[in-house]
Nucleic acid binder design. Sequence first.
DNA 1: AACCATGATGGAATCGTTTCCATGAATCGG
DNA 2: CCGATTCATGGAAACGATTCCATCATGGTT
Lengths: 355, 355
Amino acid sequence: MNRRVTIKDVAEAAGVGVATVSRVLSGGSASPQTRERVLAVAAQLDYRPSALGRNLRQRRTGGMGLLVPDLTDTFYGQLSEGVLACARSAGEPVVIGSTGGDPEQEADLIGMLLEQSVDRLIAVPSGDAETWAPALRAGMTVVFADRLPSEGTHEDDDTAALAVHDLMLLDGLPPAPRGRPLDVPSVVADDRAGIRTAVRYLRGLGHRRIAFLGGPGHDRRAAAFREAVGTPVDDDLVVFATGSRDSAYAAASSLFLSRPDLTAVVAGGNVLGEAAVLAARELDLRVPRDVSLVMYDDVPWAELCSPPLTVVAQPGRDMGYRAAELVMRSGGRRPRDVVLPTELIVRGSCGPRRP
Amino acid sequence: MNRRVTIKDVAEAAGVGVATVSRVLSGGSASPQTRERVLAVAAQLDYRPSALGRNLRQRRTGGMGLLVPDLTDTFYGQLSEGVLACARSAGEPVVIGSTGGDPEQEADLIGMLLEQSVDRLIAVPSGDAETWAPALRAGMTVVFADRLPSEGTHEDDDTAALAVHDLMLLDGLPPAPRGRPLDVPSVVADDRAGIRTAVRYLRGLGHRRIAFLGGPGHDRRAAAFREAVGTPVDDDLVVFATGSRDSAYAAASSLFLSRPDLTAVVAGGNVLGEAAVLAARELDLRVPRDVSLVMYDDVPWAELCSPPLTVVAQPGRDMGYRAAELVMRSGGRRPRDVVLPTELIVRGSCGPRRP
DNA sequence: AACCATGATGGAATCGTTTCCATGAATCGG
DNA sequence: CCGATTCATGGAAACGATTCCATCATGGTT
């Protein structure tokens, strides 16, 4: 790095003290002629205040952190674009990290952000409360987007309890103090309504054996699925993959193989939807003739698919933007959670049930 | 932010000077017993060195910047994942920015990075040499990925000259000093070979009227296209969109409408490919019966498309990883440019020409 | 004319780290 | 046994900004 123009240089060139320059540049009081002179000199010297000095003095880094599971997942790409748009309009830097859905990597990245004194963070969490404790203990302002951390794994956890709890969250009620609930604001889609709409739509087409294909972080959607179906759902009709495309494909394949009687699938995310299409094709199941498919997430390629995919769209970009707003404007008080609407977009991947 | 544990606290608790603590923690010399004590105390206090203090002292920010046009473009998602993987393994933070393909925003983001004293930057450039001058002048280590900045617009620039110049670059030769060439290392795919393969494949199927549908930054690919075709190409068979999906769709539509005689299209990127499929469908052109299509970039959904898309795959993730390596390991010397191989993956979107 | 309020201004402290340099002890060779 | 070299160590300066506080000039009020 070349020798940098510092505030001292500007002060000398303008014949004033450094304090005055600082005041002028950060909007403090100064006489008009001084202000003008300082600004002129600063411009002439092409002076840029060093964020390093400022941050050290203020004991905080400007900007915010952003943690997502995977940038090749279009949905997280959209979410990130939203965050970046908001940050850009505020002129703030964004430090990004990709966790791969792995709590351990997530913890490492949190540690890295802590070292950087990044004190505001937007995250699509992969770990549980324990993973997030260090960040909160250090006083970070955290906003969760798209999902909430899974509860710590207590031995007495059963899916039903988890479901009820999570659905309460969805309605904006304070979570029942189960385990160690994190008091962190969040921006999520209305998964409950979105899934419900999808299930009702499929039922309206006559489907009765509907499966849910989820990925990491789709617990809330799975719970909403069970609730929307109403009657108890066979456990092997709700399957989970681990995040990678391979795992999603394997989960989809084994679902189709183990339950040849199913007539419809709800995929909990675009990677899962992709896997479902691929697996169905491989097994010679035609969509929607043999099996109907609704995918959570709208992505540009859903329309290109054969057939075009019926989806539950959630506003990824807005989600990111709102989360960034929240994390920036959080003036000490805990902001309200934000729940964004979803929309069922009917294309061609669902048909009436065939006997 | 809570009161932070500083090096001073550790020094006091361990009964040594701050200098000693610093040395121990950064691998300097110290007696075994001192080292042990300091490490024990540091661990016990959960001490994390503040990157702020260090960076100020060393007058540089650790980590690197990353500038891409659009994170919802799967290819840039892949590239970013590569960069992040490399950075993560080195424990370095990445400051990301999305330029939207707009040189002005790019310049703003460069300014922001400069303020942050980020001195290493990986970029998929949108602006020209002028946009990049400030960064280079400030001594930033820059690596371009996926593409090179377009030359400044000189009035005497013509496409042919640009093509020749860029193709020389592709072969790893130093660029002819035309205008103000930037001496910046780069990691790009072998566009020339990739496009040539695609064109030869199409010609082998009998196609003679082949069009190229490009986006911003696809000049090299367009030039390679012209070269691969050999005979002069009608100007209206090489069309460019401006980056948005809408613009890509409009360009594809108008291409099909203005040249109903074309029988094959090479799309310069996945967004363009998507647009081509959409536009063809809208105009009732069947792929590959009425028009064959090869898309640059392999993306997961290419296989889901109807028909599955024949693509020229380029290794996005590797590209990012290599670029990050370059920007980190660049020990003063300018590293060699990296050119990565492409691969034609034949699926179902190309067929023999029909009269 | 004395006094006070106001506002502009600059010096100096501060943030947390690294690193230069001086000090003192200890080890080594002659 | 002594001078020279090595080595661990801590004090203090430096990085570049913000901000507290004291100072000084000014203008208005009694």
